[in-house]
Design a binder for these strands. Sequence first.
DNA 1: CGGCTACTTGACCGGTATCAATGTTAGTGG
DNA 2: CCACTAACATTGATACCGGTCAAGTAGCCG
Lengths: 243, 243
Amino acid sequence: MTNSCFAVRLSHFLELTDAEEKTLARLEENRRHFKRGEIIREQDSPADELFILNGGWAFSYIRLGDHKRQILRLEFPGDLMGTSSIAFGHASDTLVAVTDCVLCPLDRVAVRALFDEHSRLGTLLFLISQAERVSMDDRLASIGRTSAKSRVAALLLDIVVRYRIMNGEDLKGVEIPLTQEDIGDATGLTSVHVNRMMQELSRDGLISRNRHEVTILDEEKLVELAEYVNRYATIDTSWLKGS
Amino acid sequence: MTNSCFAVRLSHFLELTDAEEKTLARLEENRRHFKRGEIIREQDSPADELFILNGGWAFSYIRLGDHKRQILRLEFPGDLMGTSSIAFGHASDTLVAVTDCVLCPLDRVAVRALFDEHSRLGTLLFLISQAERVSMDDRLASIGRTSAKSRVAALLLDIVVRYRIMNGEDLKGVEIPLTQEDIGDATGLTSVHVNRMMQELSRDGLISRNRHEVTILDEEKLVELAEYVNRYATIDTSWLKGS
DNA sequence: CGGCTACTTGACCGGTATCAATGTTAGTGG
DNA sequence: CCACTAACATTGATACCGGTCAAGTAGCCG
């Protein structure tokens, strides 16, 4: 029995062999804890490690000159984060714990060993990184080419859809531990305007809000408004089947 | 002597062994030609192949409802494109030839074979895909959090910087075969506003324009305006050295 | 020469940002 | 449990960036 978050995630894509599971479990032997709001790793700092997020929410962001910030990705348990240090000797983004978090650091040498010893897992990691790239493509299109309201809708949908992967497919409501300023930094808006858009979404009957909990009331209309595509539903790993 | 575009690109990162070079060269045995403006692959069409771009410029885009388009990436010789089909059985984006192009298609089986037989190359592909992701992160920040003028400046800089990789580091001017509408779709602006911003950049003495050729006059100021980071310059593959 | 397609320009509009004030909630220490 | 405080959410007034619409111009290719 493994309690490797990463192995659980990967097994959603592919049935893993015992050897593969064992290797993955070893990656999570070291654990590090971070408190809510704590910075895990600072942009531009030297970094040759990446992290498996074992518990909690985190996000990454890029800081631009004087007070501008772009949140790049929300990270959920099972996500591999801080992967930019694979390509650079330093961090291209800042990682911050949204809630209390448990992380498992690994270094590049471990990544190389994984690719050398379990090329199928390496290929799977490559596949997943491509899927995440597509997800970033969608975000880019959302921010570049849709209205404020659609962008907020798309972010909320993405959160719910990803939350479901680990917590059950029939979930409608999520406690979102982000401030409206965070949501603004993720969608390229101001917190003031995020507030107005969320009120409009409520008024339209697409969502309801209670404190930080957001519930999807009319998912179909929300998907249409956001022009959202659920990529996670169509991932195809058939060509990796059979070790 | 190889004429594999891809091998040349990868050898910028790492000194390749003969066996690795030979394997890469085999990937480019099939070539397919596309004319300027021709669509290589349509969004949502079934697709289990990806392409090495051997010659010419191409780009990928996502189409959103009624007439909205987000250009995702410009592709230059040596780039691997259409990689979304690795994770999905279909294309998440449309690929189009900007100029006449030569492409080498490969399928997912070939990718898996590459990872199995040359895990170091697999790791390198993973590394490169992470570097490209960071580059997308920068674009996201540019579009989400900077002004129209900065976005156009960032796109121009990115084109010049990437063009230099294959064509010489001292280049200042590039013939850009994109319409202003294309540039708008890449930066999240309208063609009309792109036009205004490019005129401003000229007026400010940062660039000069002659037909479709753009010349960088004051790179330092342009970098500052765009808040541009040249990631290509800091890629670190030292941990892959030694097979 | 004619008919595209793309670029340029100007007038005007609307969506989102900005600024500022107030209300609300969560956290802290007494 | 309450008072105090800081952070966050909400609301309104106003400004401005970039979009929209429309017309005119310039290249380009048959």
